[in-house]
Design a protein around this nucleic acid. Structure first.
Length: 649
RNA sequence: GCCUUUGUAGCUCAGGGGUAGAGCACUUCCUUGGUAAGGAAGAGGUCCCGGGUUCAAUUCCCGGCAAAGGCUCCA
């Protein structure tokens, strides 16, 4: 008998050779029908494999990320089986699961696959899935594996086998298709009910552009048709919310070939929105003890030699700017920190001055690869909501906590509810690639872990992901569609204070090196605005939105009254437009709704007589008549509620 | 940076070796209307840029630039 410990801590006994599936069946048939794979002593395995002995076991279903991965990995095999049936002679590269579905890289020889072929592939996959073919695992010797793929003529698989050790090679077979695969897989193909081939793209074999380009087929599958439908609806919604499309429609920003790729031009409405974000952040930072500084867009090349950026990124940056002086070189700044270090160093600092929090909405320039440019999310010139905190080592944790508070405050004000933090620490084994004393690292790492825990954020710890100069914490938010976006980071830095020889005089009257913390809650304003456009589908929070209301006169006769109301509202700080076209009210309402104006203020004879405006709320309809003052108060109350909730939380 | 696709009016797009079209937007006129599209007329284009083939190129070919998707990268 073997003892199996389940996630709830209970222990059950099973006969030697029992499988995870047997365990599932002993719990309930319903569970057994949903088990995709199993985590045995921390390792994900086939549910159909005999358990190795006493073990801890969790059964993985569609509700587990690892269960989904298994499902999609098996789906990749199903895709391959369908391709082999439809396109005999195809050679196969790799076919892994990804965040949303899976892909398979294939070599079709002379043939090509286009969008038009997807339906046939999907049909074949469904046909094969319904055969309920089991995924059968078989350990093979290296020689046998080589023999199999040599006969099949698949050089890609042979290359993969070449990198594996004899004794650790397994094949999986379902139906007529056999693949080199570590597994694990779902019990059989019938779990796969809904199938969609999403797209086709080129991808180099092993990601190496010098090697052959294969055809990559992306697909996604689900256990239920309904889930596929929902997924496709979500994708459509994401397309509708694309910030590049909405940004154009809403006149927020544009690009010009003549200005250059990746260099956004902010239109008046977008620039004003940016300004509101900046002011909001400035205010929050002032309350948190930051001081604003301002530094130029360029700096001498020597500055970046000191910081080390020249050595590491110099050749991939915008190249130095020369001057009439022979040998004089300046760089467009790729970061604000070197400038801020010089501000710190501009005079002697006492421990009493610390922490010194220097903030700047600094615009930086990085030569991103052309293929990487993407709307506002990835640009070559962008503005960071940057700040550098210079502090004593014993202040790191408190500063971290304060930064996290600030970030959460700001994100809540923008309507984000779901955050996660990723803490990046040193590699557990190899410590040679990090600079700074072991003692400082330990302190800083512990400080970050504690700070993240104390503020109650969901935290993932990643070892080996720290920068060479210090550990960091990255913020992730989930947007309204459940997509994860990485925002700004908080990073501890021992390197720059060293390189810039920064010092403060301690209470012991000796010189000490400060610790530097980089932090940018939004990361870049550009990327952040892209995120809020997509998160809100262009319906920004009232305090941020370009246009809070639009006045719609019933006819030309009321335009003068409308103008008066508009200037009254403007005097009370309300951003209000006026539709003075000679159109019918129905038309004006329709256009205002489509333009997503939060409030429509209808003004006709009735309203003029009673000194009111008829208020209509976007998406909600008629909200009754009220005076201009009452409406302004309504707006202000709404804004206070949105921002107040954030402050209180 | 690499691969594939795309680039025509402000926007969305059709067309095609003989210098160009639709819908929406815009302008003017008519209409002055009460909660999601009133009517008519008009204006608007280096068909991305440069070169080549051709009697003739926006159309075909080559090169650039830009965008989309993918690969690789990201202080």
């Amino acid at each position: 008998m073997i003892k199996v410990t389940l996630p709830d801590g209970s222990v059950r006994e099973f006969a030697q050779g029992a499988t995870a599936m047997d365990v599932a069946k002993s719990i309930s048939d319903g569970l057994a029908r949903n088990v995709l794979s199993a985590k045995v002593n921390g390792e994900v395995r086939d549910a159909s494999r005999p358990l190795p002995g006493d073990c801890t076991l969790s059964l993985l279903t569609w509700n587990d990320a690892e269960g989904k991965s298994t499902f999609w990995h098996s789906s990749a095999h199903l895709l391959a089986e369908a391709i082999e049936a439809l396109y005999p002679g195809t050679k196969f590269g790799i076919g892994p699961p990804i965040e949303n579905g899976f892909y398979y890289d294939i070599d079709l020889g002379e043939k090509t696959i286009g969008d038009g072929d997807f339906a046939a592939i999907e049909a074949k996959m469904k046909e094969l899935a319904s055969k309920k073919s089991a995924f059968e695992r078989k350990a093979v010797s290296k020689a046998d594996a080589v023999a199999y793929f040599t006969e099949k003529g698949d050089e890609y698989k042979l290359e993969l086998i070449d990198g594996l050790n004899d004794g650790e090679i397994t094949f999986y077979t379902q139906g007529s298709f056999t693949d080199l695969c570590r597994g694990p897989h779902i019990p059989d193909t019938s779990f796969i009910k809904a199938v969609k081939v999403m797209s086709v793209a080129g991808a180099y074999w092993r990601g190496d552009e010098k090697r052959k380009q294969l055809t990559r087929l992306y697909g996604i599958t689900f256990p239920k048709q309904k889930e596929l439908d929902e997924h496709l609806t979500l994708l459509e919604e994401a397309k509708k919310r694309d910030h590049r499309k909405l940004g154009k429609e809403m006149d927020l920003f544009t690009f010009s070939e003549r200005v250059g790729a990746g260099l956004p031009l902010w239109l008046p409405k977008g620039a004003a929105l940016r300004e509101r974000l900046i002011n909001f952040m400035k205010e929050a930072q002032e309350k948190a003890g930051y001081v604003q500084v301002a530094t130029p867009h360029i700096g001498s090349k020597a500055l970046y030699e000191t910081s080390g950026h020249w050595e590491k990124y110099g050749k991939d940056s915008f190249q130095p700017i020369s001057t009439p002086q022979e040998g004089e070189l300046f760089m467009l700044k790729p970061m604000n920190c070197p400038h801020h270090c010089e501000i710190f160093a501009s005079r002697p600092r006492s421990y009493k001055d610390l922490p010194l929090r220097l903030a700047e909405f600094g615009t930086v320039y990085r030569y991103e690869q052309s293929g990487e440019l993407h709307g506002l999310a990835r640009v070559r010139g962008f503005t960071q909501d940057d700040a550098h905190l210079f502090c004593r080592p014993d202040q790191v944790k408190e500063e971290f906590l304060k930064v996290i508070d600030l970030v959460l405050l700001v994100l809540r004000a923008l309507g984000f509810e779901k955050f996660e933090a990723q803490v990046s620490l040193r590699d557990k084994l190899d410590r040679s690639k990090y600079i700074g004393s072991d003692e400082n690292w330990q302190k800083a790492e512990q400080a970050i872990i504690d700070a993240a825990a104390e503020c109650g954020m969901k935290t993932v710890v990643e070892y080996g992901e720290a920068a060479f100069y210090g550990p960091k914490l990255d913020f992730m938010v989930k947007d309204a569609l459940g997509r994860r976006w990485q925002l700004g980071t908080i990073q501890v830095d021992y390197n720059l204070p060293e390189r810039f020889q920064l010092e403060y005089v301690g209470s012991d009257n000796a010189r000490h090196r400060p610790v530097m913390i980089h932090r940018a809650p939004f990361g870049s304003l550009e990327r952040f605005i892209a995120l809020i456009i997509e998160h809100t589908a262009g319906r920004f929070p009232l305090w941020l939105t370009p246009e809070q209301a639009i006045i719609l006169p019933i006819s030309d006769k009321f335009v003068d009254a409308a103008k008066q109301a508009q200037s009254q509202l403007a005097a009370m700080g309300i951003r209000c437009e006026l539709d003075e076209r000679s159109e019918k009210i129905g038309r004006k309402i329709r256009d205002a709704e489509l333009a997503k104006s939060p409030f429509m203020l209808i003004l006709g004879e009735k309203e003029v007589e009673s000194g009111t405006l008829s208020v209509r709320e976007h998406g909600a309809g008629d909200a009754g008549a009220m005076t201009v003052v009452a409406f302004a108060r309504l707006i202000q109350e709404r804004i206070e509620m949105q921002l107040g909730q954030a402050t209180a939380a």
